[in-house]
């Protein structure tokens, strides 16, 4: 394949990675931004989203689109409920102390992972795509579903941006993020905001997983890569910054796609990690992050 079409193909694949990464990292960033909790179990919410999507779609004996839509509704709800319970039973009892919650979420990571292994087994499970459409470019054909994944992620990110910046719910979340004590002094139930944000962060990861599972398959160890890449994205973009998360996800996702296609996936990871190191040294708050109060 000539250079131009090859670059286009790599960029498209990179954009799919970026779209999923942006959604997943957005959840992580939201949780850190508002709660100051580094959620090491975030990748497991992604994994749980994928496994529940497989489970739900396998129960639906109809057109794959029906099963997929059911999974798209049920999976984030189940994962959100699991996150809510975890928040109540673990994080709240630790009073959201940053160091303690890192250790606690490492524990949650293993518990969720082993529960998934015990319940669903080690096999990778395929979920059929809701539709099979091939978009024909002059040089190659491309999956219409993958393009739909990009579009869905863009819509969800825009919806998140709208909620955060244009609604009362977003105003309450931002007030809690900037100064939780003053927020309480103005009637904001910070505990409830934290619970809602933690569940929402997990649901974003679950939605990302449902969108990608027809391309990747679901299995119990699949949470590790999204977790590491999400950390890379939020460190580069700035923890708690929506704009930074999206920009960094595109940078890392498309960079990964292009470098992997023309050189090697290992080199792509090396570059991303190097970028994180440079950001941590020269701009620790990230490209778009602000220092916390």
């Amino acid at each position: 394949m000539a250079f131009g079409p090859h670059l286009l193909l790599a960029t498209l694949d990179g954009l799919v990675t970026a779209a999923i990464l942006a959604l997943t990292a957005l959840g992580l960033s939201l949780v850190f931004g508002v709660m100051r909790v580094v959620n090491v179990a975030h990748g497991e919410f992604f994994m749980l989203g994928a496994i529940v999507a497989w489970f739900v779609s396998s129960l639906v004996d109809a057109h794959p689109a029906i099963g997929f839509l059911a999974a798209l509704v049920v999976s984030p709800l189940v994962v959100g409920a699991v996150a809510l319970v975890s928040e109540r039973l673990v994080l709240r009892r630790l009073n959201y102390q940053p160091e303690a919650t890192i250790v606690a979420t490492i524990g949650m990571l293993y518990i969720i992972q082993q529960l998934a292994l015990t319940t669903f087994g080690p096999a990778a499970r395929a979920v059929p795509a809701p539709f099979s459409l091939r978009i024909d470019f002059p040089w190659f054909g491309y999956s219409g579903y993958k393009l739909a994944v990009i579009a869905a992620a863009v819509l969800l990110i825009l919806a998140t941006w709208f909620v955060l910046t244009r609604t009362r719910v977003g105003l309450v979340m931002r007030a809690t993020q900037y100064d939780s004590e003053t927020a309480q002094a103005f009637g904001i139930p910070v505990d409830r905001v934290y619970a809602g944000v933690f569940a929402t962060g997990a649901m974003l990861a679950a939605v990302a997983a449902v969108l990608i599972v027809p391309v990747q398959q679901a299995y119990y160890l699949m949470g590790l890569d999204p977790l590491l890449l999400s950390f890379i994205v939020v460190i580069i973009g700035g923890l708690g910054s929506l704009r930074g998360t999206v920009v960094a996800a595109v940078l890392v996702g498309v960079g990964d796609g292009v470098v992997s296609a023309f050189f090697s996936p290992t080199l792509a990871k090396i570059i991303a990690t190097l970028l994180v190191a440079l950001v941590l040294v020269f701009r620790p708050q990230g490209l778009f992050g602000t220092t916390a109060r």
Partner: peptide, 16 residues
């Protein structure tokens, strides 16, 4: 809430 506008700060007070 320094990153918010004057109107948004007032809105937080009104909502309480």
């Amino acid at each position: 809430f320094a990153e918010m506008t004057v109107a948004e700060n007032l809105e937080i007070g009104l909502m309480a």
